[in-house]
Structure formats: C-alpha cells, structure tokens
Design a binder for these strands. Sequence first.
DNA 1: GTGAAAGCGCTAACAC
DNA 2: GTGTTAGCGCTTTCAC
Lengths: 343, 343
Amino acid sequence: VKLLEMKRNITIKDVAEKSGFSVATVSAVINGKNIVSPKTKTIIENVIEELNYHPNEVARSLKVSKTSSIAILVRAINNPFYLQVVLGLEEVAWKHKFEILFCSIGPNLEREEEYIDSLINRRVDGVVIATSTLDRQNSLQKLKVNKIPYVFVNRRPKKLQEHEWFVGLDNRKASKLIMEHLYELGVKKIAYLSGPREYSTFYQRYEGFLSVTEKLNITVTDEMIFESDFTKEEGFRITEQLLSIEDKPEAIFCSSDLLASGAYLAIKKRGLKIPDDILLVGIDNSEVTDLIDLTTIEPQAKEMGKIVGNLLIDLIEHGESSFDQETLLEPLLVVRKSTQLKK
Amino acid sequence: VKLLEMKRNITIKDVAEKSGFSVATVSAVINGKNIVSPKTKTIIENVIEELNYHPNEVARSLKVSKTSSIAILVRAINNPFYLQVVLGLEEVAWKHKFEILFCSIGPNLEREEEYIDSLINRRVDGVVIATSTLDRQNSLQKLKVNKIPYVFVNRRPKKLQEHEWFVGLDNRKASKLIMEHLYELGVKKIAYLSGPREYSTFYQRYEGFLSVTEKLNITVTDEMIFESDFTKEEGFRITEQLLSIEDKPEAIFCSSDLLASGAYLAIKKRGLKIPDDILLVGIDNSEVTDLIDLTTIEPQAKEMGKIVGNLLIDLIEHGESSFDQETLLEPLLVVRKSTQLKK
DNA sequence: GTGAAAGCGCTAACAC
DNA sequence: GTGTTAGCGCTTTCAC
C-alpha cells in the first residue's frame, strides 16, 4: 500500500489519464498540432489547466535535440554598450521562444574555454561572441566541431573564416562622418586619440580617420595622434599633454566617449571653453555624452543585438542566413554643443 | 546494410563500448565519483578525450530533476545598475556551476507571466526578481506552487511573505548618511527630489530623509520636496523651478543620480557654481557622477548580485539559507567636489 | 570495482 | 483522430 507518496511531478501521462486520451494526443495539443479535434483539444486544455501542468521543456529538449537557447559571451567590462546589445538580442530571442544564457567571462582565459565546454554540454543552439575574438582559437574550434553556430558582435577577428559571421558598426564610416562634420566647420588641425588598435573597432576607426585626412586636406602629424587604453584617465592625461604644446589642435577627435570625457575634464581644468576654444567629439553616444553636450556617434547597439539574434536564429533553424557574412550598421552622427560654433 | 549513417552524437554508450567498460562506470568517472579504480579512470578519460565526448547536460538534467540554472528578470530599462547586479550574480553562479538566464520583460505585463511560465517549463532552479515586485501576483504564485525559490533584489514588495527573500541597499541609511554629511557642512535648508515613491527604494530614501530632518534641525517645507519620475529631464525641470524662487535652498538632495544630473544642468544653465552657490548630491554612483564631480552613494550593486546568488543557491540546494529574509547592504558615501566647501 | 537495467518526461513514427 | 511504443542520453539502485 502506498498511502503516502512524495508529491510527484505532473507529467503528460497524468494529463493523458485524467483526460481519457493518450499521451500522443496530449502532446499534439501542447505543440499546437492541428491534427486533433476541437472538442478533444478543449477537454485536454481544461485538464492541463486543472492539473496546473507545465510541460517539461528539458525532456522535450532531450527528445528533439534542441534547447532553444543561445548564449552570449561578454567580458566582465561594465560597458553599457553590451547591455544594449543583450537587450536587443533578448527581444528577438523572445519572439522566437529562445532563451538567453548570459556568460561573463572575466579576464581569465582558462575560464573562457571552460565556459565553452559547459555551453556545449548544455547543448546551446548558438552563441554570440561579444568580446573581440575569443582568445583561444581552441574554443572556436570546439564550437565548430560541435556544429554550434556562432557570430561575432562589435569586435571581430582580422579574418572571418567560413561559417563565421560578424555584425558591428561601420567604424570607418563613423570616423568619416565625424571628419566631414569637422571639415564643414572649417577645422584643419585635429588631434586623434585612439583606443588600442589591436581591437578591430579602434583599428577601423583609425583607418577611417586616416583615409579622409588627405582628401579633406587635414593636417595630420605624428604628435597629434595618440594610442592608449580607452579610459577616462588616459583621455585626461593625453589631453593635458596636448594642451601644453604651443600649436594646439582646433579639435580633439576621441575614438571613444570615455576618452572624450577625460579630455573634457582636462580642457575644463585648463580653463578652456568648448566649443569656443576647442572642439571635442567622441564615439559611442554613452550616457555621459548628453550631459557634457558631446558630439558623438550613435552605434545602434540595440539594433546590433537584434540583427545578431535574427542572424543566429536563421543559422540555427536553417543552417544558413540571408545576412551577409559581415553586416555593418550605419553610424549616426549626433551633433551637440561641443561642435556648434557660433557664426 | 547501413553504410551511410548520419553523423550521430557521441554518447556515454560510445565511450563505454570503446573503453570496454559499462556506462555506469563511465558515468561514475564523469561525475568524479571515487568508486572507480585509477587505471579504469585513466582509460576512460582517454577515450573521452579521443572521442571528443561532451556529456549531455540536458539528459542529466532530466534524470536528476535539476537544471543548474537560475533566471534573472529585469525590466528593459537600460540601467547599468542592473548590469552590475547581473555581473555579481554571474560570478557566484559560475563558481557553483549554475547558468544565468537573462530575461528582460519589457513594460508589457502579459509578457511577465508568459516568461514565468516559460521558466517553469524549462525547470529553472531559482529566479531573481530585479524589477520591483512582479506586477502580477499571479506570477509569484506560480513560482511558489512549483516550488521554485525566488528572491527580490533592489526593489521589494511592501510585505515579504513566507518563503520570500530580499536583498538590497539600506536606503534609509543612505539618506541619513547624506543628511549627516550636509549637516556637518552646516547646511540647514535642503530641497529633496524624490523618484516615484511607489518604488520601495525611493520610498525608503524619502523616509530616511524625513527621519533625520528633525533631529538635525533641518528646515523642511512642502515646497522644498518634489516627487517625479527619476529622469534627467525631470531633475532639470524641477531644479529650474526651484532656482527661480527667492529663498533658494543651500543644497539639493536628489534621490538618484539621474535626477542629479538634470539638476546639474539646470544649475549650470543659471550660471550658478557648485559647490560655491549650491550643493548637490545624488544616489547611485553611476558613471556620470565622476564626471560632474557629484557626491553620491555607492550602492554596491555587484556585491548585491553576489549575495543574491549565494542566497538563492542556498535555497536551491538546501531549501534554506543562513541569510536573513531581508539583507541590507551598507551604503557608502562618496564625497566629491559637489559638496566640498572651501573653508 | 564494475555491470545490467529501469526510468526521468517527452516526441514521432507507425498502427488502427 | 487517436493510441502504442521505442527511444532521446543519462543516473542510480542493486546485483555480482
């Protein structure tokens, strides 16, 4: 006799028994198959409600070899940019009934590979790599071997191999937009603060900058070009140095808002006025830009996330996508006071 | 004859056959059980390596009725604060080999409930609610019925029921810290800008503010107290209004940095100097505060995430936790120029 | 120390 | 339209 029983999970079998139909039929109504009669459907749905039955997605995943989940790997940087990407990604994932696994690999390289292993074990259907290229080529290889599609977002490896996708900002164009804007303002002497050029983003921004200097007849000398970590501190340090030379630039073009905010502080400290004494621009349209009235580039991070999601889900569901191997988003110039010269 | 076969997944059975041992033994070595002889272990591990075998976590989850995953629900607000919480949460989750499902429910209330259903179906082991209380009591009820533990972070419902946990900032104390700081500076007339008091955070900050005004002999009249949405725009609007009256406050206490940054702009626009003409403080220690040299409160969001993680995993693994039902983090006063009076 | 076998909850042939 | 049943890949008693 089993009078006392542990409160067992309710399964499809319970629903079948209680409704008087078979598990197959119940399964059909759960999955919205149209092969079941309306009356039966209603009966079963009622029982489901009554029993408070929740179909076990784990069992389903096992059976159909699909988890409807995608992982996004980010570095632990607290960069709001990636929050936006995740938000966009999440939005399209939700529409397709996919779940997002959020993976923040710190600076620890080993952890990266462990994470990948763990994701493979969990049989995620795809992964978004939001952290330049993975440092260990090994990790990418593992994904490939296990036929898990992945796409890079924002930063990319130098070379995209077969079955590798990328979506990010058109950084070259971003720089060009800014340069043309400065050109129209009559600026001829520009300082350029680059982030680490080993990152594709900064490399491309730098390329874009260089590519138009000639055409626009902009003076560019080595002492006007800097490369550093993209922190406020570095922006500050470099700008201080920059402002101490006699032949000051008319504008400072920072390849990221963080650098620009450092530059802003240095300019203020020196008692100079923006835009009267010097112009300042950044890239990223981060939260601070609005506050310090900085002209910048909106990178459309959320839109990026959406595209990544659609692309990846294409790849998962059809093994291919109509997106190009490389999708570039249009940079949007946001003009604020920092470049508004009074006539 | 089956000459052509689809590339089948490698399973534990393959490892068993190739190694000459049984699946049970292979399972034991995968799970690090000490009941298997060292030689056997080595042999099996080699085969695993050789076959590039990845244990199917989905099958395991089904068998052991545990997914080792926890979900975090946030509103779609692009609030970097929650990024920090997620980062902290992720850190402890990783240590315990849990995965984070990132769920961003937008303003849509229906979606909230659908999300909960989906999480139940996926059999997440626990959920973090980072979005005030869920608006539909129904959702909470569902979690409870399905014995999925959950904990609130940052915002909380008025009343914590049994089996409900909360971890957040000690908001009352945060306000007190600020007030005491202002008091020491000799400030007697303070304006207070509150966010929506329906949120527990703003309610508590307001309470904390009020509770010490008497003791510190601070003048507080109705026209010095405001409540609005916590946006930069509102901060700007209210401050403009505030500065137009004859009897200006000596300090503006904003219950969030966003409000404070709006206030900052309004003050600057009016040509007033901080801190010479007026003091300004906020709460949150967001990215902007450093830039505008704002005295504020560091809420320790990442630490919050860590505590939530430990608490929730306790709950999942032991059905209880040594944490109190309500855990409050110590607010940290960050003094910057906006309240540094020259002697 | 190791193996055989039952079963976790579901889906999808295939039968009727 | 509906039911029977074999497995998805794993863990875990219980023998040996």
